[in-house]
Amino acid sequence: MTIQPSKLCVEITKKVQIDYLISHPEGYADLNCEWGLIIFLHGMDMRGEDISQLSNYGLLEIMNEGELSLPFIVVVPQCPYESYWNMERDAVTALIDEVVADHRVDRKRIYLIGYSMGGYGVWDLAIHHPKKFAAIVPLSSGGQISKAEQLQNTSIWAFHGAKDNIVPVEHMTNMINAIEQHQGRARLTIYPDQGHDIMRAALSNQELYSWLLEQKS
């Protein structure tokens, strides 16, 4: 696994610079292969301008420890200070388009994973771009119940801690219930003895990545 720091400058209504890390899987040198793409959105405390702090955080931390060898390109952008992922929605979609254009990405296998603030960002991006993602994995978060119908054709596996005192578990269960009311495909894992920080438990689950590989848009 190699992790490379990169930057993307996006000009929409304002000039936004999104720094990101990108990791290529073993075997990426094979020019005949295309790979699934995972975009991982971090939580609030990782915002800023120091992209290096994300190199051993969340999904990349678990990969660095050798617990997982994932057959995906993994991209980890950094949200600017005093901003949120929904505010940087256009920048993230521009980043995805750049990665797809410059790397050997299977366009039918683009996935979103996010924790806490990043989980809210996952819900928001998928609601606004429901056809862009083969599956989403929100952790410790909730979504816009009034827009749940937009996700009726999106594969979802959500994770939450029952003892979360930052984002109550009801925020997640209410969103999942709303999606199911629109005949959506939503799967929910609740950790009965855990609180808000469930990243390691959820992201160390090899079954999650096997499930992702089964999802295509």
Rank of each mutant, 00 (worst) to 15 (best):
K132Y: 05
K147F: 13
L59F: 07
E11K: 13
Q206Y: 03
P25C: 07
N56W: 03
G58P: 01
T173L: 12
S116Y: 14
Q215E: 00
P71F: 02
Q17R: 14
Q4N: 14
Q150P: 01
G121L: 10
E49R: 01
G195K: 05
S204P: 06
A134Y: 03
S210V: 13
M175I: 08
N177V: 00
E149P: 08
L112V: 09
A178G: 06
L125K: 07
E170I: 08
L59N: 12
I176R: 00
R185D: 12
I156C: 07
I62D: 02
M117I: 05
S146K: 15
M63S: 12
K163Q: 13
R104V: 06
E82R: 09
D164Y: 03
D19V: 00
E82I: 09
A186V: 04
Q53H: 15
Y28L: 02
R187E: 12
Y84H: 13
I18D: 08
F159S: 00
I113G: 02
S204L: 10
R185E: 11
E26T: 14
H182T: 05
C9H: 15
W123Q: 02
S155E: 08
L208C: 10
S217I: 14
K7H: 10
K147Y: 15
K131M: 11
R47V: 13
I136T: 05
G184Q: 01
R109D: 01
